[in-house]
Write a protein that binds this DNA or RNA. Structure first.
Lengths: 229, 229
DNA sequence: TAGATTGTTAATCGATTAACAATC
DNA sequence: TAGATTGTTAATCGATTAACAATC
């Protein structure tokens, strides 16, 4: 049997479908069609059906999908149907936002430990947890059994932290540090970069303006070393 | 002249190139080849050259790219070569992390105003800025002249906030609220969803396990209404 | 010059969209 | 049954990769 690799965009959309379905469930909607999903999610009906087709058949022709059952199925696909402990590294501003993030719980994601290397922070309470020493990550993870970790430290220490986490059994990393992590092939990394997102916006918003669209080609060396601005 | 639309993935990578180049510049490297860029960025040399080709010619065959000049070019392409004021909406945990985010400045991005609708927060200092009333966003933006805004409010109020921002002249939105924003076509939205990222990781880390890969098809109605777990 | 590396074209790959037979 | 909507296949679209002539 040839396993078809599920495209990453499909997985990303699955999370959106789940959110929309939870809202619909909340609103008392029991059945939903792919057409209605398109309206709520902004993702085309064809795309929705195609995405689900990677995992099985969940709808009934002429009727649609049971909201409740589809929620359960997507939760199972994404393994959000059981508690998922996570390790947070970095007890700074961003860490505080994450440890207090209210939406994790609905998806059974839970920050089970907070680590840092700052002795001023270690031992203190942080979002209801005692900050522990990153040097003891192995020991900590024997206790909490996390597979996923969140890196919310400066770029300069992100790689070191990643190495320690992987050694402690982490196989999925959500990386907020603006740096490329080098990890073994079995470890999955997802990067969140505010700067990248803002850079894309910055490009687009300016696009609407008069247009200094293309960058003046600037000869390397040879010339006077100044861009022809 | 047929304008070739620059692919979004290219724009995203541009931000990564810029970061790598700034690091290289910091390290005193003056010239860099696409091959070296591949090593530092994890993005293939061919991809790097292709990405740049949308904007012009920046290298010298046999030599490579001037780090300094390429930095200037990419900054210009992304319009990060001049100050960019931004409006932050939401003076909560996440807002605090954003307003204190140290990496914005290097890219000349600056949070110029913080808005909220909570009267307890309005008037208070928040990351060096006085929190202002979201209801006065138009007035505020006449002062700061932002084109980009960051939405860091609960999903329930995100759409209302977006509408107000757009009315106040915002054309680029970085949305942290887990909801699909409806905006006119000229407004660009980038969504950051921690939950989505974690959901993708959750899928992958479990993939390595024994394999409950595919979700048991669950008939809609008809049956006993229970998944065959 | 010879070696290195660019910018670009063509080939490949993968994801999205459209269409429709199957089915409730 | 007739109408609606699914799951899937084929067509389209777009992005990535590989290859190489041009050029420093």
């Amino acid at each position: 049997m040839v396993e078809v690799q599920v495209p990453t965009p499909t997985l990303e959309r699955l999370a959106t479908y789940l959110r929309v379905l939870l809202d619909a469930h909340e609103a008392g909607i029991e059945t939903i069609s792919s057409q209605e999903m398109e309206q709520y999610s902004g993702i085309s009906a064809a795309q929705f059906r195609k995405d689900l087709s990677y995992f099985g058949e969940f709808g009934k022709p002429g009727v649609g999908y049971s909201v409740e059952q589809l929620i359960r199925c997507i939760e199972r696909i994404l393994h959000l149907d059981h508690d998922q402990p996570m390790i947070l590294v970095g007890a700074g501003n961003l860490g505080a936002a994450l440890v207090g993030y209210p939406n994790f719980r609905a998806h059974r994601l839970r920050i089970a430990a907070v680590l840092d290397n700052d002795f001023v922070k270690i031992g203190r309470l942080f979002g209801g947890l005692v900050v522990e020493d990153i040097a003891r990550v192995h020991e900590v993870n024997e206790r909490v059994g996390a597979k996923i970790a969140i890196i919310a430290v400066p770029a300069s220490s992100a790689q070191t932290v990643a190495d320690l986490l992987i050694e402690a059994g982490i196989t999925g990393i959500l990386n907020f540090a603006p740096t490329v992590l080098r990890v073994p092939p079995y470890v999955h990394v997802r990067n969140v970069s505010f700067l990248q997102e803002l850079a894309v916006l910055s490009y687009h918003i300016a696009e609407a303006l008069p247009s200094v669209q293309s960058c003046e080609p600037q000869p390397v060396g040879g010339g006077n070393g100044r861009a022809a601005l």
